[in-house]
Structures are given as structure tokens and as C-alpha cells.
């Protein structure tokens, strides 16, 4: 859909108000660079430094408690299972600390588990700090403005918006079914029947709505090609643009410095 370009809102806001505020793409590139650093340098010191930086950034963005809560939901079960699998059952381990039947607690297994937990925790905190900080609407606009298919932006924004409402819908459906006499019986069969009575209406409702939404999207020219006009402010500055380019090129160079020798090594050993 090609419309006349208004002087301001369609382009990133480069004015004085934009200074001091991060563009979502700057946040994305920062998070991506941190992930590359964590993966390229397999060292606990690097992971601790990146973890500290991510937590400091989350604190500065006033999302530290949300990041900590969301990260703990992912990292705590991961850490417990890592300790259970590698801490108790690590046949490659030589330094046995304790033996409990078939389980052997070894130093090597505990170190292995701790290293993977630390790296995973760092990656999770970095990525959650970005996803909880970013405004999805602004990110969508920033991506589509730079040539990312508009469909990707629609799906991202729509799915994240829909996810927030589905649990409330499930509650309403369950209440409606309970009003019709649904009783969740004990045992797997009772639970499956109860789940079916809640999931099937939810799916029917969502698919039906998707059909109506498709008609509305078509009527608004969503599948037409051409430039879009956005009225969402996207803060940006020359400094941020330079920093993004620098970080992106540096990250690519680091990735290439690790990936290319690894691939050449495979070919070399095959030859």
C-alpha cells in the first residue's frame, strides 16, 4: 500500500526526544552480540561477565524483577535436571565423590553440569532481558521498515497479543462447561475428557476468529505489496545506527572466526 510519506511518523525519530532512548533494533543487536560472545568464548568468566551486564541492563530498564522471575521459571528446572542427569550419572567421570546405588557423584559430572547451567542461564537472562524490555509494536515497525516481510511482523504481534488472552478464555470456557455440568473426575481418562471439553471449543473459537480476521485483513489490503506507512514512533540516533553496524559486523566476524575453521577442520579430517 503506497501512501504519501508524512514528514515524521513514517521514519525513525531522529530528533532530540529520541536521544537517551534505545531503538528496539539496537537492543536486538546488543542481545545478539551478547549471545555470540557467550557461544564463541567457552569460559565461565565470560559468561559471568555477560550475565552481570545483562542483569545490570535489566535493572537500569526497571525490569530486573520480571527478568529474574521469568528466567527462574526456565533456569531452575534446567539446573535441577542438569544436576540430576550429569551430577549423578556421568560415566566419563573419574573423581568419585559419592556412590548411591547406580548413581555416582563425580567432580567431572558436577563441573560439566555447572558450566552448562551457567551458560544457559546467561543466554536465557540476555534474551529475556531483551524480550521483556522491547515494545513489540515498535520492534515490528522497525523490522518491516527495513525490509522484513510484513507477514512476520503481523504474526509476531498477533501471537503475542493473543497469548495474553487465551488463558482468560480457557477460564471462561471452563466456567461455562462447569455450569453445564462438567465435573473433572480423577484419573487420566477423566482429565482427558475434561481437557477435550475445554480445548475443542477454544480451538473452534480461535479458528473461526482467524477466518474472520483473514477477511478483515484482506479488506485492508494486507497482501498488497509496497511501502507501508507507520504512525509508531521509533527512537533512533546516528550514534545508535553506528553502534548497531559496528556490533553486527563484529559479531559476524567472531562467528566467522569460529565457524569457518570448524567447518574447514571437518573437511580436512575427511580428506
Amino acid at each position: 500500500m503506497t501512501l504519501p510519506q508524512p514528514p515524521g511518523p513514517d521514519r525513525p525519530d531522529d530528533g532530540p526526544a529520541a536521544h537517551g532512548r534505545l531503538n528496539p533494533l539496537t537492543g536486538l543487536v546488543l542481545a545478539g552480540a551478547a549471545v555470540v560472545v557467550c557461544l564463541a568464548w567457552a569460559s565461565w568468566a565470560v559468561w559471568l561477565a555477560v550475565l552481570g551486564a545483562a542483569l545490570a541492563a535489566a535493572s537500569r530498564g526497571r525490569i530486573l524483577s520480571r527478568v529474574a522471575a521469568a528466567a527462574s521459571v526456565v533456569v531452575v528446572p534446567f539446573a535441577l535436571w542438569a544436576l540430576a542427569i550429569h551430577g549423578l550419572f556421568f560415566p566419563e567421570g573419574r573423581t568419585v565423590l559419592a556412590e548411591l546405588g547406580p548413581a555416582r557423584v563425580t567432580t567431572e559430572g558436577l563441573v560439566y553440569a555447572a558450566l552448562f547451567v551457567l551458560r544457559t542461564a546467561t543466554l536465557v537472562v540476555v534474551m529475556l532481558a531483551f524480550s521483556l524490555w522491547v515494545d513489540v509494536a515498535t520492534l515490528r515497525v522497525a523490522l518491516v521498515r527495513r525490509g522484513v516481510p510484513a507477514q512476520l511482523g503481523y504474526v509476531l504481534a498477533s501471537a503475542l497479543g493473543l497469548a495474553a488472552h487465551v488463558s482468560a478464555r480457557l477460564v471462561r470456557i471452563r466456567e461455562a462447561q462447569e455450569a453445564r455440568g462438567l465435573v473433572v473426575r480423577r484419573g487420566i481418562v477423566g482429565r482427558v475428557v475434561a481437557a477435550r471439553l475445554q480445548v475443542v471449543p477454544l480451538v473452534l473459537q480461535l479458528v473461526d476468529e482467524a477466518g474472520e480476521r483473514a477477511t478483515a485483513l484482506e479488506a485492508r489490503g494486507s497482501s498488497l505489496r509496497g511501502r507501508r506507512t507507520f504512525y509508531v514512533e521509533e527512537p533512533d540516533s546516528r550514534l545508535q545506527r553506528s553502534a548497531r553496524w559496528f556490533l553486527a559486523v563484529a559479531s559476524l566476524a567472531v562467528v566467522a572466526s569460529v565457524v569457518v575453521p570448524a567447518i574447514l577442520g571437518i573437511f580436512g579430517s575427511a580428506g
Binding site: 516481510p149 507477514q151 512476520l152 503481523y154 504474526v155 498477533s158 501471537a159 493473543l162 497469548a163 487465551v166 488463558s167 480457557l170 480445548v199 480451538v203 480461535l206 479458528v207 476468529e209 482467524a210 477466518g211 480476521r213 483473514a214 485483513l217 484482506e218 494486507s222 497482501s223
Partner: peptide, 27 residues
Amino acid sequence: LFVGILPTLPTTTLALIPVALVLNIVL
């Protein structure tokens, strides 16, 4: 795959994808 596939999807399919994502996540 994104660049190759996404722009070719009809709107009916595109509108269904967020529903599928939510089902994946919830279940």
C-alpha cells in the same frame, strides 16, 4: 525459509498461524 515462504502464504493461512502458535504454547 522465512523469505522464501512467508510472502507466498494466503491471508487465510497467515491469520491462522498466530492461533497455531498460541495452541502450541498453551498445550
